[in-house]
Design a protein around this nucleic acid. Structure first.
Lengths: 116, 116
DNA sequence: CCCCGGAATCGATATCTGCCAATATAGATG
DNA sequence: CATCTATATTGGCAGATATCGATTCCGGGG
């Protein structure tokens, strides 16, 4: 599956019905978040003091095989939640804050809604 | 699968590594959002002027069978994103703004992160 | 009390997903 | 160039998921 390049959205879900094509793109990102291991990976990377984590940090944090971790990293990267960079022998992963912010905004509850 | 009752979280993912047990709960909710049809259903319900939509509104909006829509509604309801109420012959669905807000908060990007 | 219409549930099926073992790749290092 | 180490890719399997047609359930009216 090809990477999901640009940011795609737009108004909060609760504001107006999301366009079907946009929904498909957004759903891919949420689907990537819909796995406990990937959520934890994302959280570990995002909360690292240096802003990045190497794969070795991650394999150590789970009772899963290295290929499985690598697979999850690829999923997160393909939907634009992570980027990776090689330095020396190690791959370092970082979160893409814009992506997180975008999703956060999509789920935001308009003021008009809380008033009801 | 039993419904996911109480709100479960907590600090933004980018703040500290999420607890594995919490990750499992949160992942269920994101997985529910990880389908284009469910995303659209949620958006249609959430953006309805009255704050609710009946199943008939939804089946009309998709080229899918009524059981399929009903299934997706159940998934969204089980993770606490929707509630339903019967009035006369129709079932009305509403979003649970607290759930949306909770997810939005989880994905929020701490100020410390944007500064980097 | 029976029927009708809206909605949920059931059963089946095709597709997708997560996992691991094995293998491949790609820098670093001798 | 041979090798070692870190990570990615491949292949296969077991379990989950999306969908549909058929059926069931449940209020409301005759």
């Amino acid at each position: 599956m090809e990477p999901l390049e640009p940011l795609e959205c737009c108004a909060p879900l609760a504001r107006e019905p999301i366009d079907p094509a946009q929904a498909a793109g957004v759903a891919r990102v949420f689907k990537a978040l819909g796995d406990p291991v990937r959520l934890r990976i994302l959280s570990i990377v995002a909360s690292h003091a240096s802003g990045e984590a190497c794969v070795c940090d991650l394999t150590a944090a789970f009772d899963l095989s290295q290929p499985t971790i690598s697979h999850h990293l690829k999923v997160l990267k393909d939907v634009g939640l992570l980027t990776s960079e090689r330095r020396a022998s190690w791959m370092y992963y970082r979160v893409v804050p814009e992506r997180l912010a975008e999703l956060s905004g999509l789920l935001a509850v308009p003021a008009a809604m809380t008033e009801r």
